[in-house]
Write a protein that binds this DNA or RNA. Structure first.
Lengths: 248, 248
DNA sequence: GAATTTCCCGCAAAAACATTCATAAACCAT
DNA sequence: ATGGTTTATGAATGTTTTTGCGGGAAATTC
């Protein structure tokens, strides 16, 4: 096998699987590891791949890392803008916390007249910046990680609410397990919020779709609308649409 | 699985779900805990995540309030330091909001173990920075200018509390009318707080001494201790001492 | 304050790597 | 063809990286 031929094979392999191991390649092509290493070095120099200890990674896969501050910030902004279109004057709105909800809070029209219920300290601080928004804070113990209220009192209060719409910043969603999260207290709160609202909207960056966490919040049939940064026609949503979730 | 690959997986997991446990990761990736720990250390060094005992956290979503520029800032810091001396481990503490209370929050010893009740959004955000402080937020409608909860629900909740000590940031005090303020809702809350606490402490800059506002919170006999930036021996305090108020 | 969990440090084994050298194949001009 | 040159490969050797483990320190929990 010619050198050029071999390198093309390696490239194809990388683009196909996003990674290769030196050991795999040397077995597949039947040359010494040193030869493979030399090939990888050359390919890395011309810039098509990223050489790492043990093999190499595809460059396209490696992209997309950390901008500034909030992860996937632009996407969250886009999501927030879509979510805002669901809000009308006079509505009673229930929201969780999380960075995506925070973006929603920032994206609200300045003169929106509505009532917001929340247990999130950062979100509440954003809401009160708007002159015509009434903010009702749901009290109880504050969870340090998520900066939202959790506990029985909070849940009792939430159950007394009958909101028009509920915006959930969610942590993981898939068609099999539905909405899942990793903090027991937070799960209880989200559960209650879903029950206390006529319409439930989940906000999430697409990356979280088809992932799952340890604790279940609820099945997909409790969810009315899901908003991501993607186009609603993407085929990743097909399974969700089939389960009756509207995609925005 | 390659090291680089693994670290990208970890980073993704953190950005998606805001936190990871070392134990979860080592199970998911099937490597030893030490390896995960080493990865987390490296990622933390390059600044992408925050390493904590047991796992790691996302870097976004960590805010603190800027207090530079607050009127009479140094004096308020001094007042806060005096107030801290009244606090003991295990106490149940009730606080209002306001910039002086915010200074108190910042001046708390890092490892104080106590339970704080408050209806102030900024104060609550400070309290939760402390690992051993439990924060109970008193919910209800949020007043926009004072950023604290007001309303009947809040007052009902406050009345159910029996705190060891209550710190009031006050607006005006004189010997004739006692404690006064200018916002009806806030007055109701402060009244309730004074009644729900064994000991009541008022924090104020000396400038507000011997001034009055339109609405009465309560007489001086409800007040146990007053803290200002001045020396307690100043003669301005004589009249207050006579009425049974201790000066610190 | 005792028990449990998590962390940190140093060690050792294994894997991966770089460097050098020798061989062999390919190329090329005569 | 042939000798010289370049290029590619594999092997030998020593170095670096990575990883898991043991034991003791530190933190956390009850």
């Amino acid at each position: 096998m010619l050198k050029k031929e071999r390198q093309e094979f390696i490239l194809r392999e990388i683009n196909l699987h996003n990674k290769v191991l030196t050991s795999d390649l040397c077995e597949a092509i039947n040359v010494s590891e040193d030869t493979i290493r030399r090939d990888l070095t050359e390919l890395a120099e011309t810039g098509d791949i990223i050489k790492v200890h043990g093999g190499a990674l595809s460059k396209s896969f490696h992209v997309s890392f950390q901008t500034n501050g909030v992860y996937s910030h632009d996407n969250k902004k886009l999501i927030a803008q879509k979510a805002v279109t669901l809000i009308r004057d006079g509505m009673f709105i229930l929201t969780t916390g999380g960075t995506t909800i925070l973006e929603l809070a920032k994206a609200l029209p300045q003169h929106l007249r509505a009532t917001f219920f929340t247990g999130s300290l950062p979100a509440a601080l954003e809401y009160i910046q708007h002159p015509n928004i009434e903010v009702i804070f749901i009290g109880d113990r504050i969870s340090k990680n998520s900066k939202i209220t959790v506990g029985g009192d909070a849940i009792t209060k939430i159950k007394q609410i009958n909101a028009d719409i509920c915006f959930l910043g969610i942590n993981a969603i898939d068609t099999e397990h539905g909405l899942t999260d990793n903090d027991w207290d937070v799960v209880q709160v989200k559960k209650a919020m879903m029950q206390s609202s006529k319409k439930v909207v989940a906000l999430t960056i697409a990356e979280k779709i088809n992932t799952q966490q340890k604790l279940k919040i609820g099945d997909l049939d409790l969810l009315d609308i899901m908003i991501t940064e993607l186009n609603p026609d993407e085929k990743i949503f097909d399974a969700y649409k089939q389960k009756g979730v509207e995609i925005l």
